[in-house]
Amino acid sequence: MDTAHTEQRRHWMAVLARASGEDIAGRLATLPPLPPHTPLRPAETGLVMVRGRAGGDGAAFNLGEMTVTRCAVRLGERVGHAYVAGRDKRQAELAALLDAALQDPAWHDALMGGVVVPLAAGQAARRDAEARRAAATKVEFLAMQTTR
């Protein structure tokens, strides 16, 4: 698989990992139904050990675990994978299905435009609102007297 394709795939997987099953289903409902798929691995919740680095940039250490749900489906000759934070099985199923369908050129553009782009826009807007809220709490120092 070429790098550009992997980057695209990483992008849609990242967006789907941050969207709830309900939100993905809501977006999919506006599109024609996807072809039938075979489950390869049913949605399953497990753990991923989250690692940090000593001092932020030193040797890795194990911080603690987080719940993650994964799923894999086959759609024609394409296999879709999902690993998403939390325990939303519907999210994992839909993310795996979309990962398979998005690899299919016949579906790619419709699904990007109908699902991934709008979800990404909503996520970016929420991130921006929070970052502007944080910026509003930034201290603007007023020196009473300049000393050194």
Binding site: E44, V48, M49, G52, T67, R127, E130
Partner: peptide, 29 residues
């Protein structure tokens, strides 16, 4: 958590890329 399988370990977190809600320093104004 003991009832759940472990899928593996994450890549080490990049805290330098954190989406900040709060960030203070007592060493530099």
């Amino acid at each position: 958590r003991t009832t759940l399988p472990r899928f593996g370990a994450s890549e080490p977190l990049d805290t330098g890329a954190m989406r900040l809600r709060r960030r203070i320093s007592a060493t530099y104004k």
